[in-house]
Design a protein around this nucleic acid. Structure first.
Lengths: 342, 342
DNA sequence: GTATAAATCCAAAGCGCTTTGAAGGTTTTT
DNA sequence: AAAAACCTTCAAAGCGCTTTGGATTTATAC
């Protein structure tokens, strides 16, 4: 069923059908009712491609994800993020266009997406420090919002967690409990969020007059396995730390496994604070938190990104909106006073 | 940069430009080179909407995901699945169109997707028993492949794991170790895969002449928390089981937590076999498996789905291709002989 | 050298929609 | 009753591409 057919059926011109359906005022209520009824009856849906071509708007939001590869994996938070964003998209009739690409060609992919006219706006994820993608997107003039942010430039929309502050607080929390040697198990430090968390960790150390020991600072892809291996390594040191900050729940799972294997008790023998993205399939305890954590919902971030982006698409020339979410510090049973030295 | 401009620049007609770029033979190598060079220089990319409109192919694969809600959550395997699929899509220039919808309107969403001409084909996920979506997709004539399958009809493309057999083997493996009371912690049993796994579990019990105890069979959304609560419940029974089958790694993480809290040792005091989707961020041990598991890579399933779908799009009328992957049974340290009764 | 075939190229139509500019029909005003 | 104003509708152009059918040029055969 297309416009022409529907026009024939209703006996009014294509123009009128189009206008009736799109709510234009210059059509009588009589005809509008007639058209609407026919459209419903024949389940007429305007062809999106034709509509996009005619209007110049594709009603698509672009996401560019790195392909799965050795050193890059599908992001476990993506599902929750996009589900959050979709609450906003759905209402306004936007769909999501996902392009997968090798990470070294991401920038080109953005350029192509623009040249091909595939999307009206883009959500950029996992920004690095001085991320070149940002300048490219700015140059293209394609509306975009960054989930996270990129040190280096400042005039773009973003939604980020106050990662620095979160890890300052987390570190202080542990120091207050008497911990002096606190490990950091971080995400890949070419990513902006990981850099900021590290800064927070370092800053708190400085503030509290504690020495930093780079041999208990780690960063890599945030897998369960990395959490496990790192924690195992820590626990077999001559003078192991008594606590650790972990950048994700997933890594903490591995860390917990390592701690369990050594016969130690979390929260007693070893304290852990994690950053909790509030993933739906990994709730950090619904009543009482399992892990003490800095918590910020990635679904909520998705929702906010979407709102800002849709807004930016409608009115392109406006001040960058920059939202920095404060993570809440939730206290669970994975932390306790530092064990006393015998 | 569009066709018309490029045509003006190169001095040949739009027809020729189009043909040169799309590799048609009726254009001399001279002109083709000329056109290609210009296209590269100006980074010309054909407008996808116009192309789609002209050809009738959108070069988009549709996914319909349920919105996040109380009883439905973003699927943690989605990222890996789509990353696998994209290896295939990318090569052939397909992108992914994700529509999020309430789960009770999924069927309509498919119909709309078809009516709007947004996609050339669809990957259907998380099939239920007698899933109405399948008959709708068949009626529409839109190429689709199901990740999983749906008891009830049989004439469609799908890629599934042999869930029944996997859980027969897993159960037998535990029985061989002397376990007599084996719990089942399953996914939501309105989903086809969960039904099949349960069947496998039951069948093995029957084969081995074991009684089935429905009080140690559970099913729900596969979260860490559900794994934890269920395992806690099991361990506090008067006569607790000595082993359990779990439908996902995520749930096993919760189960492990519960077991640890009770001071028991996995593989010694309590045995666990899981189904492992081989998620990239949750590797079940790279050298030695953490959990004994029936393993089948969801990324691989994604790749196969994509291949079949693209094939089906090219040649619509062909026998349904149905791939049933056998899960491998990998033995890790989460299983051991049943503890002897005192 | 002309006739035939092959190789290149192009103008124009069409994909399904939106939107401009104009026309036909009603109602109101003078 | 004619003029002005508005309301409602429509034909046609245009979005950027592909593709048909035809035209023009070049190569091959007679």
């Amino acid at each position: 069923m297309n416009l022409k057919e529907l026009s024939k059926i209703t006996g009014v011109s294509q123009t009128t059908v189009s206008r009736a359906l799109n709510g234009y005022p210059e059509v009588s209520e009589k005809t509008r009712a007639l058209v609407n009824a026919a459209a419903k009856q024949y389940n007429y849906q305007p062809n999106t491609k034709a509509q996009a071509l005619a209007t110049g708007k594709s009603k698509m939001i672009g996401y560019v994800l790195p392909k799965a590869s050795q050193n890059e994996m599908p992001n476990p938070i993506f599902g929750d993020f996009i589900a959050g964003a979709a609450q906003t998209y759905g209402k306004q009739g936007y769909d999501t266009n996902i392009t997968l690409t090798d990470s070294d060609t991401q920038a080109e992919t953005y350029r192509d997406l623009y040249a091909k006219g595939s999307v009206d706006g883009i959500i950029m994820q996992a920004p690095k420090e001085n991320d070149e993608r940002i300048s490219i997107l700015k140059k293209l003039g394609l509306p975009f919002v960054v989930h996270g942010r990129s040190t280096g430039s400042n005039d773009y929309h973003f939604v980020d967690v106050n990662n620095t502050h979160a890890f300052v607080r987390a570190t202080n929390f542990l120091v207050d409990l008497g911990h002096q040697r606190i490990a950091l198990i971080n995400g890949n430090e070419n990513l902006d969020f990981a850099i900021r968390r590290k800064h927070g960790y370092l800053q708190a150390h400085e503030d509290r007059g504690l020495n930093v020991d780079t041999t208990i600072m780690f960063s890599s892809e945030m897998t369960e396995e990395f959490g496990y291996h790192t924690m195992t390594k820590l626990l077999t040191m001559k003078s192991p730390p008594t606590a650790a900050l972990l950048s994700s729940y997933i890594m903490a799972i591995g860390a917990r496994r390592a701690i369990g294997e050594k016969g130690l008790r979390i929260g007693k023998d070893f304290s852990i604070v994690i950053h909790d993205d509030a993933l739906s399939y990994l709730p950090n305890g619904s009543t009482h938190p399992i892990f003490t954590a800095t918590r910020s919902s990635v679904g909520e971030a998705g929702r906010l990104c979407a709102e800002i982006l849709l807004d930016a698409i409608q009115k392109p020339e406006q001040q960058p909106r920059q939202i920095i979410l404060e993570a809440e510090l939730v206290v669970g049973s994975s932390t306790g006073p530092a064990p006393q030295h015998d």
